[in-house]
C-alpha cells in the first residue's frame, strides 16, 4: 500500500472572522495535490498550520507518518517550503542568503542549487531587494529545490511568474515526483496549472473542503450540460450546480455518462474545467447559506 506523506485530520483553527472547520485530507507519496479556492477560503492557513507557523486549536497533522510538532526538526529538514511572499534579508546578495540557509539542511546540495540558479538565470551577486517579484520567487524556488526535499509545500508559487517560466516550473514539479517517495502540495489561483500537473485537487470555501478528488476523476466523469429541457426531465441526475441563462440552463454534473443518456440530442455536453467546478460549487454554496 502507498504511504501517506501528509495526513491532516479534523484540523481546526478559529479567528475572529474566519474558521477552518475540522478539515481532513491526505496526500499519498508520488503525487501532486493542488489546494484551490477563492480568496480567504483557508489555503494559506492550512499551509501555515502544517509548517507550524501558527497554532492549531485541534486536530492532527502527520508528515512522513510523524506528528508535525513532536518531530518538527526532522520533518522540516525534508520539506522544501516556498511562501507566498518570499521573505529574506533584503540587503544581502543571493549567494550570501544561500550560504546562510544551506547549513540548516543536512541534505543541502550546492551543485543542484547552482544548476537551478543557472537554469532560472538568477544573478547571484545581486541583492534580494533588487530583484523583480518573479525573480524573488524563482530564487525562493531554487532554495526549496536544493536539499532533496521529500515534500514540497508551495503557497501560490506561480502567481508572480510569467507564462513561459510557469510551464517550466510545473515540469520541474512533475520531475520532482518521478521519485515515488516524494510529494508536492501547493496552493494556487491559477486553476489551469492544476489541469497541467496535479494528480489531486482539494477545493476549499469558507474554511471547509467542498471537494477533494483526483484530476482524472474530474476529466472522466464531471461535465457541463447546456440544455433547454425542463428540470422535470433531468431524472435523478447528480446535479452539482446550475445556472439559468436566458434561453438555456447550464448544469454541472459528476456523472456525464449518465447525463448523455438522460438529455436529448439538442443538449450540449462539455468537459468541466476546474475553474467551472470552482465557480459552480462556490456559487451554489453561498446561495444555500445566504450572505455572510
Amino acid at each position: 500500500m502507498m504511504a501517506n506523506i501528509l495526513e491532516v485530520r479534523n484540523l481546526r483553527k478559529a479567528y475572529d472572522q474566519f474558521t477552518l472547520k475540522d478539515i481532513s485530507f491526505h496526500l499519498p507519496e508520488g503525487f501532486v495535490m493542488g489546494l484551490v479556492g477563492p480568496n480567504g477560503s483557508g489555503k494559506t492557513t492550512i499551509i501555515k498550520l502544517i509548517m507550524n507557523l501558527i497554532m492549531k486549536q485541534s486536530g492532527d497533522i502527520k508528515v512522513f507518518g510523524q506528528d508535525h510538532r513532536a518531530c518538527e526538526a526532522q520533518i522540516k529538514a525534508r520539506i522544501g517550503f516556498v511562501y507566498e511572499t518570499p521573505n529574506f534579508y533584503a540587503n544581502l546578495r543571493l549567494d550570501q542568503i544561500a550560504s546562510l540557509i544551506a547549513p540548516f539542511y543536512t541534505a543541502w546540495d550546492q551543485a543542484v542549487f547552482r544548476r537551478h540558479c543557472q537554469a532560472f538565470q538568477l544573478p547571484l551577486d545581486h541583492t534580494f531587494k533588487s530583484l523583480s517579484k518573479g525573480m524573488q520567487m524563482k530564487f525562493s524556488l531554487a532554495l526549496a529545490l536544493s536539499h532533496h526535499a521529500d515534500l514540497l509545500i508551495l503557497d501560490e508559487p506561480t502567481s508572480g511568474l510569467d507564462p513561459v517560466f510557469r510551464r517550466e516550473f510545473l515540469e520541474l514539479l512533475r520531475d520532482h515526483v518521478q521519485d515515488d517517495h516524494r510529494a508536492v502540495l501547493y496552493s494556487t489561483h491559477i486553476t489551469s496549472d492544476l489541469e497541467r500537473i496535479a494528480d489531486y485537487m482539494t477545493l476549499l470555501k469558507d474554511g471547509e473542503i467542498l471537494l477533494s478528488l483526483s484530476i482524472n476523476e474530474i476529466e472522466e466523469n464531471w461535465g457541463l450540460i447546456k440544455t433547454q429541457q425542463e428540470d422535470t426531465a433531468w431524472g435523478d441526475l447528480d446535479v452539482k450546480g446550475m445556472r439559468q441563462r436566458e434561453s438555456f440552463t447550464e448544469i454541472l454534473t459528476s456523472d456525464i455518462q449518465k447525463a448523455r443518456r438522460i438529455f436529448d440530442q439538442n443538449s450540449l455536453f462539455e468537459k468541466a474545467s476546474i475553474e467551472d467546478i470552482m465557480f459552480f460549487l462556490a456559487q451554489g454554496d453561498s446561495h444555500e447559506h445566504g450572505p455572510h
Binding site: F31, S214, I215
Partner: peptide, 17 residues
Amino acid sequence: LRSLARDLGISVITTKR
C-alpha cells in the same frame, strides 16, 4: 506508468487507469 505520464504531461492516476 510514470514515464508515460511524464511524457504526456498527465497524472499517473490516468495512466494507471
